[in-house]
Write a protein that binds this DNA or RNA. Structure first.
Lengths: 274, 274
DNA sequence: GCAAATTTGTTCGTATGTATT
DNA sequence: CAATACATACGAACAAATTTG
């Protein structure tokens, strides 16, 4: 049995101190120089230990200041199956706002940006249209409690506007009840169901900037492709939502499941959804 | 605009070469020594660049051999909502085997290990039992096409054995049709529904070993807590499944959704589920 | 506003250990 | 056993960000 490398030993010791409460939230760890003396190791080895803890989200470093114990994030739980009756799912406009407020947290939506583009490979395949077909791209940024929380981009075939009269899709305005409800009202396209495909990947440059994630991709993001189907099984929209995995959880309810309990005051456990 | 650090420049250059097809799948990158000469940088800097690419799953290192361009993994898609009729969900024994075989891939289940433990905090909360109550812990390892794919651990209250006669739960044998079906048969506990909570975290030591993940936790894992409810809303089991996020996707179908298409021969796209 | 001190970020060099061929 | 290549560890220097006087 090989002995643990030094940097791991140091990391473990620091981790224990953090978990034992010796180092509380937002308190500064000893500087690299001090740690070097404490553990009688080189600076690089100490830095390896700190990086190990950073990868696991226990500490963060601030250039010129020091290394700090990370605040435990109270994750927000998005229920993907939230409103089967209306055919709308968790994460969508109206549902999202209601969900967040139900947990006593403050949502904020940016104004949407609207673009017209040619469909690229993945988009065209998801919507079963031809590559190069015109699509409407609507993009929104969302905060919870003033922290950047998710990025949502929806793609609609241009034919919804040109042939079905859904002209509000190309206005750079919020659609108050959500695009799904609008399409039902305006052109009678009812969403009979949707399919979510969930993957995890490293964030790109934009996402790192918006979510204020560490630049080296230690914190990954959920990427959810949601394809909406009408009652004939046709695909009429694709929504891609990106959530940083450190501050989000997803939930799926199947069959008969008791309703969610509301958060007990500021209790972490209820909100964490166990 | 600050210039990019050298290790990022090298990483980008290598990434371009990979994406341009100059370095094809499974081909070896130049050794660290050669890269050092090519880019006129130190070995540590070259290693930083390689680590950057490893984090993003573009290359892998094999001690004693070199650094290789990673094969694009054909992810397996687990549908969490797969069999609403039977009350069983994706990832569970019978469903899992059928799902994998339907996509022409070869599943393998290890024999389960069975332990009796006292329920710890998270387990007790999930099952709504008291901390310290006895629970049965059944653990299984799963491969697909000889690659380690998921780790599953189920927790059952001991009362199912002592008061309801579900004695097979404490036998270290496979339960062929799955524990859910067994409990329905044996003690009439029907699973009326279940709730999945999905989070992402860094793998622990065991998971790194089993899944052969990079030791420093760059590749994260999905962790799915599935709580089963009977028709009275009581919780009778908790199953925690861990999937490496680099080779797995999750799917959720809500409402009326056309059936999945079967893979077109060996096509990546169909299997990826777009 | 500026300069000094502190702290982390990046880069270099070197040495030794370990795994594989 | 030897060669190759990655993993860990040491030391040193300068750069960049931040705080303090």
């Amino acid at each position: 049995m090989a002995e643990q490398p030094i940097y791991r030993q140091i990391a473990e010791d620091l981790q224990h101190k953090i978990e034992a409460g010796e180092l509380h939230w937002d308190s500064r760890l000893p500087s690299e120089k001090e740690l070097r003396e404490q553990y009688d190791a080189s600076r690089n080895t100490v830095r390896d230990a700190i990086q190990f803890l950073m990868t696991r989200g226990l500490v963060e470093t601030r250039p010129g200041q020091g290394t700090f114990v990370m605040k435990k994030i109270n994750p927000f739980v998005t229920t993907l199956t939230s409103e089967p009756e209306t055919g709308r799912g968790g994460g969508e406009e109206g549902v999202y706002l209601a969900e967040v407020r139900a947990f006593d947290r403050e949502p904020k939506n940016s104004d949407p940006t609207v673009e017209i583009k040619k469909a690229e490979g993945a988009i065209a395949r998801s919507l079963r249209i031809d590559r190069g077909d015109q699509v409407i791209v609507r993009h929104q940024e969302r905060d919870i409690d003033a922290t950047p929380w998710s990025l949502q981009t929806s793609f609609y075939p241009m034919t919804l506007v040109t042939q079905r009269g859904a002209t509000d899709l190309i206005r750079a305005d919020d659609i108050p009840d959500g695009a799904v409800a609008y399409l039902a009202d305006k052109c009678g396209i009812e969403q009979a169901g949707y399919r979510d495909t969930i993957s995890v990947r490293t964030p790109d440059e934009n996402e790192i900037r918006f979510f204020k994630l560490p630049a080296d991709g230690r914190v990954s993001v959920f990427e959810i492709y949601r394809v909406g189907f009408d009652k004939d099984g046709n695909r009429f929209r694709l929504t891609i939502t990106v959530y940083p995995s450190d501050r989000n959880r997803l939930r799926v309810d199947v069959g008969e499941v008791p309703p969610r309990e509301l958060p007990a005051a500021t209790g972490e456990k209820a909100a964490a959804g166990e």
